[in-house]
Design a protein around this nucleic acid. Structure first.
Length: 282
DNA sequence: CGCCCTGTTGGGGA
DNA sequence: ATCCCCAACAGGGC
């Protein structure tokens, strides 16, 4: 569930709650969260420090704490951050307690335990960590057709695999990759290096538009999925073009088909997004 | 009821 | 460079 729009929405909700607050206690109930670092090491590094800023790079939430200490939280597939969750909230893995009048508590909850917390002990370490993992920000001016073309030059990988590679364009997940490709009318299995200039431009627009639409919808229904009662809001249905197997393409009415691209379940309209001749069927 | 498959992510090994 | 499998769990199909 946490794709970039949801991470950004959570960041916007959380920032006013944690920025300027002192982290009084950090309770890590599942040591796997920060593995291979021991929970005690993380506690020692973070407790007592004030949160200066909550930022996002790709799908990473970056907590900048005073003293040039940084916590990188990744929600993976099922993680979420809840503000003042009620007692007994299931799947709680980490608890952040803050100081001061009107302070809130924040909980990291994650049924599948894929989510991670990582520590960077100075700016250099933080940038080195990010440089290895995240590429250009899709909601910034850096996302342009020519920028995508430069990253794609000479590559034969399917365009969907290219989009999912966080080291090139950061923050595009499985759902939004399909969405962006449908908007750009490009088949997910097209070798990315063979796209034409106009297609790279359409792809840049498609990525930005899909994420922006998701952000608008996510912001509108944030209350639904922030609650820990299991109601996680099907907000994606509100803006996605309904790329589901068996359903009709909203543009041309052709039945949406499913196949595997970039190692993930992929949905496309093979009329709007013509399949390349050399790509094997299903 | 139980088995099997799928999955919004990313790292590691082949 | 690329593909496959895995982490841990829930939910749906059969």
């Amino acid at each position: 569930m946490p794709e970039l729009p949801e991470v950004e929405t959570i960041r916007r909700q959380l920032a006013p709650v944690v920025e300027g607050r002192r982290l009084a206690a950090l309770e890590i109930e599942d040591p796997r969260w920060c593995s291979p670092l021991a929970p005690a090491a993380l506690r020692d590094a973070l407790e007592g420090r004030r949160v200066q800023r909550l930022r996002r790079r790709g799908k990473y939430l970056i907590w900048d704490l005073e003293g040039d200490v940084h916590l990188l939280v990744h929600l993976r597939m099922t993680g979420t951050l809840l503000i003042d969750p009620p007692p007994g909230t299931p799947y709680r893995r980490v608890r952040f307690a803050f100081d001061g009048a009107g302070a809130h508590a924040v909980a990291f909850c994650d049924p599948r335990r894929f989510g991670t917390g990582e520590l960077a002990l100075d700016d250099n370490a933080l940038e080195a960590f990010l440089a290895l993992r995240v590429g250009i920000e899709p909601l910034s001016d850096a996302l342009t057709g020519p920028a995508l073309a430069a990253l794609a030059r000479g590559r034969r990988a399917p365009v969907k695999a290219f989009l999912l590679d966080q080291r090139r364009v950061a923050g595009v997940g499985n759902i939004y990759a399909d969405e962006a490709l449908h908007r750009a009318r490009i088949h997910p299995l097209r070798p990315v290096g063979t796209l034409k200039r106009a297609q790279f431009a359409a792809l840049a627009d498609g990525v930005r538009d899909a994420l922006t639409a998701g952000l608008a919808a996510g912001g509108a229904t944030i209350d639904d999925f922030r609650h820990a009662d299991g109601v996680r809001g099907s907000f994606q249905d509100e803006f996605l073009v309904h790329l589901r197997r068996g359903e009709a393409c909203g543009t041309c009415g052709t039945t949406i088909v499913k196949f595997v691209a970039g190692g993930r379940g992929t949905y496309a309209c093979e009329r709007c997004q013509p399949r390349p001749r050399n790509a094997r069927a299903q």
